[in-house]
Nucleic acid binder design. Structure first.
Lengths: 330, 330
DNA sequence: TTGTATGCGTTATCAT
DNA sequence: ATGATAACGCATACAA
């Protein structure tokens, strides 16, 4: 009795195989044992359908092969692509992913960090909107898109370079006057540098530009008002190129413009940011600055599994690329 | 020494508070203890920044408050919406999510199930493409969209009803001849019933219909060929309404038709399936049969946490709704 | 090379 | 109500 319908343990395997407990442990961990022993153990494992208990193992070894990932949500294409790549990167290294969606709520973020700490994860990868997130310093942390300080590595796209690239591409395609549109968090984060790069390029190219920047939560109508103000009676707008801070915003702007009778890209060319594709893998939504999401994911995972996290660089910017999605001339 | 920089345990808390180990355990689990004791323990916990070790706890209690979720990927909008809702549903019940993306690979699916079993999860929720998936019967399993047998509850949309609904809506909107387009797995699964419902409605309404059904992996060009075959010299197609098995397919079909000069919805009306929105939360891609994803997620989580999974219904179909996304007249 | 014994951090069963 | 102690399943140092 006792072995009937309950989950088998190492002890059961040892008894079944007629060997000692330690021998079973060695076999399960790939430590050399006599060939005949190994075989008997393997047979017993198969017969009993035995699985090592990661909880008992983790308790002993202080290693859980689990990494927590924390993002605002999974429906935004950038986040879902990111989590998808992180998941692949972790799986490839035999790690498991514990996933938390925070809905941009700082309180929830803090709560999930505590949960992850309890879970004794081997590390936390987060894209956080809580500037004062508290994390015990005995659990490795890597941040995406937000710089927390020198001790915590931050991985992001080269947002500044991406902003420059967008302006340059618009000008290359014949634009003579540009606009930058942004909606986003007021918190300082890496994506805010898209604007700085854009302005920098405009100034070195000596191209006039307009900015329309609003805080998260502002109704979209603010942008429609802005566009209408710049509509010209003879058709077109006061500018012939627009850089939108994300593809999601670009998508809305394009809709608005078309409904106003402005042609894209004939009257105005538009570049977004992210590299979003319809249904994740079909065509681009718009011309865009593509974030290197697979590389971001790989970098985060490499960092978090690194022993010497403390002497890792505090900011790693990965190169972006430009892709034409039909809302620019090329 | 030993307590200096290492992670505090219950023993440390007990010593700090000057109480017994068991007392600390009781406080951490909300079991009544004397008021003065509780206070001293709480102070010690705060001072040491103590967190219970879920691994040790899980080892004792055989309960991990963790559920494994397995889906093909996170970039497909339906999957990412599903995982997003599952995550919310689990969080709300204080459960954690272990996430596995299988990339439609049966071997990986089997491997992840084993990982989940080792992890002693309290249950597995999966959307599987492995018809012979083996799961120990001591871990609760709930399936989405694939019927594994009477012992394993399967949750899905009312795909049959959705197929009927699509046909009915097209006819309501004036269509007199319909087509059904599908690409998908040859494995029997619930979404295959969309076709059956569609046909059933066409027949009861006495409306002629055409089917174009291809296996996963077939190049999309097969559909373009099909459309071209049915192009009429005088404009339009041999049919004036199309039901596509997913929004993703509908999106491609709409593009193809427009490039062929066929107007949507003037010449032909189109309905997809899923309820996909641009960027997860913006406008619909097309007119569509909306899957009740939040309800599917809630149902799965309720089932998996249920004690008596064995006497749960073996198939639960949740009601779908129709939404106009501009590719039908209404 | 194989077996034995101890302890990881917690809960739960006991006496007290 | 509180304190001591034995498990939980495993890895490992040590003995054989």
């Amino acid at each position: 009795m006792g072995e009937a319908n309950s989950i088998p343990t190492m002890k059961d395997v040892a008894r079944e195989a007629g060997v000692a407990l330690g021998t079973v442990s060695k076999v399960m961990n790939g430590i050399p044992v006599g060939e005949s022993y190994r075989k008997r153990v393997e047979e017993a494992v198969a017969k009993l359908n035995y699985r090592v208990n990661s909880y008992a193992k983790g308790l002993k070894t202080n290693k859980t092969y689990t990494v927590a990932v924390m993002v605002p949500n999974l429906v935004s294409p950038f986040f879902s692509r990111l989590v998808n790549c992180l998941n692949r990167a972790l799986s490839a290294r035999k790690y498991r992913m514990l996933l938390f969606a925070t809905d941009y709520d700082p309180a929830q973020e803090q709560e999930y960090v505590i949960l992850a700490e309890q879970q004794k994860v081997d590390g936390i990868i987060c894209l956080s909107y809580n500037p004062e997130l508290k994390v015990s310093d005995n659990v490795p942390l890597v941040s995406i898109d937000r710089y927390f300080g020198a001790q915590i590595p931050c991985v992001s796209s080269d947002n500044y370079g991406g902003g420059r690239l967008a302006a340059e591409k618009l000008v290359e395609n014949g634009c003579r006057s540009l606009a930058f549109l942004r909606i986003g968090s007021r918190l300082t984060n890496e994506p805010n540098k898209r604007k700085d790069g854009f302005i920098s390029a405009c100034e070195s190219l000596d191209i006039p530009y307009t900015l329309k920047i609003v805080d998260d939560g502002t109704p979209y109508a603010a942008f429609e008002d802005f566009l209408r103000e710049h509509l010209r009676p003879e058709g077109g707008l006061d500018f012939d190129g627009i850089f939108c801070v994300t593809d999601a915003l670009a998508y809305q702007i394009i809709r608005s413009l078309r409904s106003m009778g402005v042609r894209v890209p004939e009257d105005v060319q538009i570049i977004g940011f992210d590299g979003t594709r319809a249904f994740g893998d079909q065509d681009l939504i718009c011309s865009t600055v593509v974030q290197p999401v697979p590389e971001i994911a790989e970098t985060c995972v490499d960092l978090i599994l690194e022993k010497a996290l403390s002497k890792a660089p505090s900011l790693i910017c990965l190169p972006v690329t430009y892709a034409c999605g039909g809302t620019t001339r090329s």
